[in-house]
Amino acid sequence: MDSLSSISAFLQTAETLSFTQAGRQLGLSSSAIGKTIARLEDDLGVRLFHRSTRTMTLTAEGMLFLERCRRVVSEMEAAKAELAHTQGKPRGKLRVSLPLAGMLMMPTLSAFMRAYPEIELDLDFTDRLVDVIEEGFDGVVRAGEIRDSRLMTRVLGTFRFQLVASPAYLEHRGVPRRPGELLSHACLHHRFATSGKLEPWPLKDRYRDIGLPVKAVVNTIEPLIYMAEHGHGIACLPDFAIRNKLSDGALVSVLEEYLSHEGTFRMLWPSSRYLAPKLRALVDFLAEHLFPHAPR
């Protein structure tokens, strides 16, 4: 804070080229300003002003220091403005990118819209790896590890995959007791929209590479839920997407002890940007309602 006081005295003196005028602006005596400038010059080891009995001008070093000090003060003012803004009410446009599976978050997002009517959501659903900064997003929701030093991150919650089918299908085709028995079942697969490859089922150890039959392939999760619920086969789905279907008995989980994968959803935003009230509201809401049992 002492350095900032010295910088403030220097800036006022550089603007007015007068210890007296600078003192009036800062509520100090001209003598106090003169002593502050002298100490600053001693600390820096350079002269900042050419002084005579009648005139005062900046030296070349003073001009250079002036530009730097203006930047420091500008950054301080911006920081103060940002901190003041964080105390405000969540409002305004919020542009967020979510994975295609994020469509299944719509009940939670709908509840968020009711809770924060002054926030305007601009949602982009894609599995493409967007550039958060270059494309102007306030934040992105992604599954898995994201390594980008330009981004801040917060874990929203974890999920795991489950193999599920309808009770009617299992009654007709039988309940598989071991992964090898999947070879005689109708398997419903998800294809990655970006790579075109089938998403592997996270079976443990020696069962990982068994060639599963293909009854149907889709590139979004919603059709898989529909097909499984209507008895067309067994699908591998994230638990957050089928929580209600499992609780009401529309789907039944099988072979849980043979699955090993667990995923993580994260919110990411530019590290150079403070966490605005509107973004903080969304992050907290998703963490609380989308993954209600996740550790805080």
Results as ranks from 00 to 15, higher is better:
residue 229 E to C: 04
residue 219 N to P: 04
residue 228 A to L: 10
residue 228 A to Q: 11
residue 209 D to R: 13
residue 219 N to A: 15
residue 229 E to T: 12
residue 193 A to I: 02
residue 227 M to V: 00
residue 191 R to C: 12
residue 206 R to Q: 12
residue 213 P to G: 05
residue 215 K to W: 05
residue 220 T to S: 15
residue 218 V to W: 03
residue 225 I to Y: 07
residue 224 L to V: 06
residue 225 I to L: 14
residue 220 T to A: 09
residue 225 I to E: 07
residue 201 W to F: 13
residue 207 Y to D: 06
residue 201 W to N: 07
residue 224 L to Y: 03
residue 229 E to H: 04
residue 229 E to I: 00
residue 222 E to Q: 12
residue 198 L to F: 05
residue 229 E to A: 13
residue 187 C to L: 11
residue 208 R to M: 02
residue 187 C to M: 14
residue 201 W to I: 06
residue 194 T to W: 07
residue 211 G to V: 01
residue 223 P to V: 03
residue 224 L to C: 06
residue 220 T to K: 01
residue 204 K to H: 02
residue 190 H to D: 01
residue 214 V to R: 09
residue 207 Y to T: 04
residue 223 P to R: 07
residue 207 Y to K: 00
residue 225 I to N: 10
residue 210 I to V: 08
residue 217 V to C: 01
residue 211 G to H: 06
residue 195 S to K: 01
residue 206 R to I: 14
residue 218 V to K: 09
residue 219 N to G: 10
residue 207 Y to G: 00
residue 205 D to G: 15
residue 187 C to P: 02
residue 217 V to G: 03
residue 219 N to L: 02
residue 213 P to V: 00
residue 221 I to N: 11
residue 205 D to M: 12
residue 194 T to P: 06
residue 215 K to D: 13
residue 227 M to T: 00
residue 220 T to E: 15
residue 216 A to R: 08
residue 187 C to G: 04
residue 222 E to N: 05
residue 191 R to K: 12
residue 200 P to E: 05
residue 217 V to M: 03
residue 187 C to R: 02
residue 190 H to Q: 10
residue 188 L to D: 09
residue 187 C to N: 05
residue 196 G to V: 02
residue 191 R to E: 15
residue 199 E to R: 11
residue 191 R to D: 08
residue 222 E to K: 08
residue 203 L to N: 08
residue 221 I to D: 12
residue 203 L to H: 11
residue 196 G to D: 06
residue 194 T to N: 09
residue 214 V to Q: 10
residue 187 C to K: 04
residue 192 F to Y: 14
residue 215 K to Q: 12
residue 203 L to C: 05
residue 199 E to K: 06
residue 204 K to E: 07
residue 212 L to H: 04
residue 201 W to V: 13
residue 218 V to Y: 09
residue 209 D to V: 10
residue 194 T to Y: 01
residue 214 V to F: 02
residue 216 A to D: 15
residue 214 V to T: 11
residue 218 V to S: 14
residue 210 I to M: 13
residue 218 V to N: 08
residue 207 Y to E: 04
residue 192 F to H: 15
residue 213 P to A: 02
residue 199 E to T: 09
residue 187 C to H: 04
residue 227 M to H: 12
residue 224 L to K: 00
residue 202 P to S: 04
residue 224 L to S: 08
residue 198 L to E: 11
residue 209 D to L: 13
residue 200 P to D: 07
residue 219 N to Q: 13
residue 197 K to S: 14
residue 197 K to N: 14
residue 224 L to F: 05
residue 205 D to C: 11
residue 219 N to S: 14
residue 213 P to S: 03
residue 188 L to G: 03
residue 214 V to H: 01
residue 223 P to L: 08
residue 213 P to K: 00
residue 190 H to Y: 07
residue 216 A to Q: 10
residue 204 K to D: 09
residue 219 N to T: 08
residue 197 K to P: 09
residue 194 T to D: 12
residue 211 G to W: 00
residue 227 M to R: 02
residue 212 L to D: 11
residue 222 E to G: 07
residue 212 L to Y: 05
residue 191 R to F: 02
residue 228 A to N: 14
residue 218 V to H: 14
residue 222 E to D: 13
residue 204 K to R: 09
residue 211 G to I: 00
residue 219 N to E: 14
residue 196 G to H: 04
residue 194 T to R: 14
residue 219 N to F: 01
residue 190 H to N: 02
residue 203 L to R: 08
residue 202 P to M: 01
residue 209 D to W: 03
residue 213 P to I: 01
residue 213 P to F: 01
residue 205 D to R: 15
residue 221 I to W: 02
